[in-house]
Write a protein that binds this DNA or RNA. Structure first.
Lengths: 249, 249
DNA sequence: ATCAAGCATTAACGCAGGTTGGTGCACAGC
DNA sequence: GCTGTGCACCAACCTGCGTTAATGCTTGAT
């Protein structure tokens, strides 16, 4: 099973061979997107549903005066909203951060999938619920946590999410973010992100260099940031893997 | 049509008499909830879908050290997540702010509705997409806007949302929030919310007293806060009403 | 080899907003 | 009538983070 969406859904439920094939067959229209290139821009008419197959991407909104806020990250396997085609226009943009591969699923195909495969539909719904839960946790993050907690919390989340699609290497993962992008994610200035990263490094909690994040002490990072993974709702099969990881630290 | 959910959905599409009846028939299990009382608590097993019929409520998350962040408001007509029953446990709480009436829709009823009435299903999907868009805008709000902009933006949003269910009186609406709750919503201290409200009053932009918000100058409030109502996706029928309102200011 | 662009880093300074610790008012309970 | 409680409001002080402006490193284009 090569498709990261299927790897992700497998955390929620077993899928039949037929369902797996149905998903794979839907991912035919694949496009390469360069780093820092938009996949969809704010104001565009909504088209099909996008699925990130490889790379790293984000949702972002831009204010009239130029301020930019990244409101979500996409890791491989993430769908950009199963039902966007209901709306007329995008109220935000989606952009690649690293060079990426994006599949576009036609609305009709999505509806057909959801009509024919109830178990698959439930799994897809689960993934959108998780996305929403992540958005809510980001509100908490920016609203309540200080710079250090905020940054730490984001790194914890990203590790868990990469792990859910098998894209971690132990406590490391590929994270091709600039400090400016981190700042736009965390609601901080890039200068302060720099200070904060240094503090996290000084405390031997993480390393972040050359697009690679390594968490040196996951437990401490989680405690520092009041990280509680419940909101990721990965507790179907991943729990065991997590415990194993943690013991090995 | 007495049901605020139906009033809200009417902004998106015309519903047939049969669909209207189907929704009304689903709202039988109605419960009164007192002010500051939880409807569902974090960690609870998920039950049916909740629909706010009257009052005012919120979603919130609490950190281990007691900090609380309100991550969404519910105005009458809002459903608390159509598909929660997919998940095992709530990762956040839902609490009434004012005395409220809440209907509980059994999962089976929801599925039946969505199976039998495609147009209604689209309308319900639309409403959940709007909820997600609001969550994203809240991330932008806490991440990028300063206290004054942030508070102004929230008030603009609330007016638009109350208006969509006919619960405004011109540019006024009932808003039974304490300054502490506003602070927990906006990621500010209650002291600073107080300062900010005074500044908004001084600039003759709003009044807020005795649980009633009045916007004295909507255009100025929108410009101050970079408010762009696109994300509410009300542009199906409400646009005209909005323009009329605005001219009458 | 040179130059420009993008990025991480640093230092100096300033301010928006937090914190602490009040006062006073309205209202409910006794 | 008291008393307690919740809330708006206020003042003094402090700090986390933003702003500005620079430096140097790396990479890629010419």
């Amino acid at each position: 099973m090569n498709n990261p969406l299927l790897r992700k859904l497998a955390n929620f439920t077993e899928l039949s061979a037929e369902e797996i094939k149905a998903v794979e067959d839907s991912c035919t229209d694949v496009r390469e997107v360069g780093a820092r290139e938009d996949v969809i821009a704010q104001g565009d008419r909504t088209g099909g549903v996008k699925l990130l197959l490889e790379g790293f991407a984000c949702r972002y909104k831009t204010l009239e005066d130029g301020r930019r806020q990244i409101v979500a990250y996409f890791v491989p396997g993430d769908l950009c909203d199963l039902r966007v085609f209901i709306l007329k226009r995008m109220d935000h943009s989606i952009g690649a951060i690293a060079p990426s591969k994006v599949a576009t699923l036609a609305p009709d195909n999505v509806l057909k999938l959801m009509h024919n495969y109830p178990a698959l539909t439930r799994a897809l719904w689960w993934s959108t619920l998780v996305e929403e839960a992540i958005a809510r946790e980001w509100i908490v993050n920016v609203g309540q946590r200080n710079a250090l907690e905020r940054t730490a919390h984001l790194f914890c989340e990203l590790l868990y999410r990469f792990r859910a699609v098998g894209l971690n290497e132990g406590l490391s993962c590929t994270l091709p973010l600039t400090q400016v992008e981190l700042a736009e994610t965390l609601g901080l200035s890039s200068v302060h992100v720099n200070r904060t990263l240094q503090e996290l490094r000084r405390q031997k909690l993480i390393t972040l260099d050359g697009g690679k994040l390594t968490i040196q002490n996951l437990k401490a990072l989680e405690e520092l940031s009041f990280f509680n993974p419940d909101y990721l709702h990965q507790d179907y099969k991943a729990d065991k893997a997590k415990d194993v990881e943690r013991e090995s630290v």
